[in-house]
Amino acid sequence: MPGPLSTGVGSFPGTDQRAFDEALSVVLGELGAHEPGLPFLPEVPGRGATAGMVGRTVGLVTELDADLQPAGWRLTGTSGAPALDQRRARSLLAQDLDTVEEQATGYAGAFKIQVVGPWTLAATVERPRGDKLLADHGARRELAQALALGVADHVRDVRRRLSGVDRLVVQVDEPALPAVMAGAVPTASGFGKHRTVHPPEASAAVEELLAAVRDAGAEPWVHCCAAGAPLALLRDAGAQGLMVDLGLLDASGHDALAESLEAGLRVGLGIVPTTEPPVPPGDKEHVERVQRWLDMLGLDPGEVADRLVITPACGLAAASEGWARRALETCRSVAAAFS
């Protein structure tokens, strides 16, 4: 029977360009050269703030200018003249895509890229006069619109570069969304919390980005490795895939994933540890865990296995190089066991 895919969440260990080149080699070797794999554009945040997931996404938002401050990224206006750090982020991403274009010559199949979603970006990036964009309803709306435009351009650029890719997946990372909706994001002073963002507004911003991804010719998935992920909201906003850390799900999360599988969505199960444990689980243990989960939900593996995606629990930036490679090997082996 057709089995699950295997892929990574995004990040890899390392601090220099050599680390990115090695990460890409591992990704293409483990996931691009063997079934059932979904290769992806790796992130190596150890190279600096311009290489992290927020920095990369800020670099895509060409409608808004930003620079790096001691507290992190801050918007500076809409002059169309981005600051040095934002230009560096754009340049580094273009350099990484050049490397992918070179190493993936002749590759035909599916490929995945990652961007940060509007709510995690609003909870991370500061507005010009300080505090997070989350504090300003107008600013976060403007950010969501600019993000949708920037990501659509990014999708078109990747499609142009990787002409052999027949299916492009865009993974939207929203680790801060549960905290945003729970009113748990601290203010700049640290003494208060930002106001709760209610489901209709939270859904609308995500929906705008996911629609832009689809309109640009890609398949939008959403990844949230935090507890309390609003999976039903993300599905209803237009996500065609949901990726989670399986160990963080509550009862409603399990139910939402079951409903998503039955509705035909892809579901990414984060089951492989992100750093090497004292006694790493074997492939058989991972397979049995997935089988127990499907059994708990009353789902037939023969009917839903081709919609599953096996992944690490989250990114691999804190792993050793050896474990990062082994984690992807394990994901591929576990996925293959269902075929």
Results as ranks from 00 to 15, higher is better:
residue 89 A to K: 08
residue 87 R to V: 14
residue 53 M to L: 11
residue 62 T to K: 06
residue 75 L to D: 04
residue 65 D to N: 10
residue 62 T to M: 03
residue 88 R to P: 07
residue 54 V to F: 14
residue 92 L to D: 11
residue 64 L to N: 03
residue 96 D to H: 14
residue 91 S to D: 15
residue 61 V to Q: 00
residue 71 A to I: 01
residue 51 A to V: 02
residue 95 Q to H: 15
residue 84 L to R: 14
residue 84 L to P: 03
residue 70 P to A: 11
residue 75 L to P: 01
residue 58 V to Y: 01
residue 57 T to G: 12
residue 70 P to C: 11
residue 91 S to R: 15
residue 78 T to K: 12
residue 62 T to W: 01
residue 72 G to L: 04
residue 74 R to K: 10
residue 72 G to V: 05
residue 65 D to S: 13
residue 58 V to S: 10
residue 93 L to M: 13
residue 55 G to M: 12
residue 51 A to F: 04
residue 93 L to A: 12
residue 71 A to Y: 04
residue 52 G to F: 05
residue 96 D to E: 15
residue 74 R to Q: 15
residue 69 Q to D: 08
residue 75 L to E: 00
residue 71 A to T: 07
residue 84 L to D: 12
residue 85 D to I: 00
residue 90 R to W: 01
residue 65 D to W: 06
residue 60 L to G: 04
residue 76 T to I: 09
residue 79 S to P: 00
residue 84 L to H: 11
residue 61 V to M: 07
residue 86 Q to N: 02
residue 95 Q to V: 13
residue 80 G to R: 02
residue 83 A to D: 12
residue 92 L to V: 12
residue 96 D to G: 00
residue 53 M to T: 11
residue 83 A to C: 08
residue 62 T to Q: 10
residue 51 A to T: 01
residue 73 W to I: 09
residue 70 P to S: 09
residue 74 R to E: 08
residue 60 L to C: 03
residue 81 A to L: 15
residue 88 R to H: 14
residue 77 G to S: 12
residue 84 L to G: 08
residue 90 R to L: 03
residue 63 E to R: 11
residue 59 G to Y: 05
residue 82 P to Y: 09
residue 51 A to P: 00
residue 93 L to W: 04
residue 68 L to P: 02
residue 57 T to M: 09
residue 68 L to A: 06
residue 75 L to A: 02
residue 80 G to T: 05
residue 62 T to Y: 01
residue 57 T to L: 12
residue 73 W to P: 05
residue 83 A to W: 09
residue 82 P to C: 09
residue 62 T to S: 11
residue 51 A to C: 02
residue 89 A to D: 04
residue 94 A to H: 08
residue 58 V to L: 04
residue 75 L to N: 00
residue 74 R to A: 15
residue 81 A to M: 09
residue 77 G to F: 03
residue 60 L to D: 01
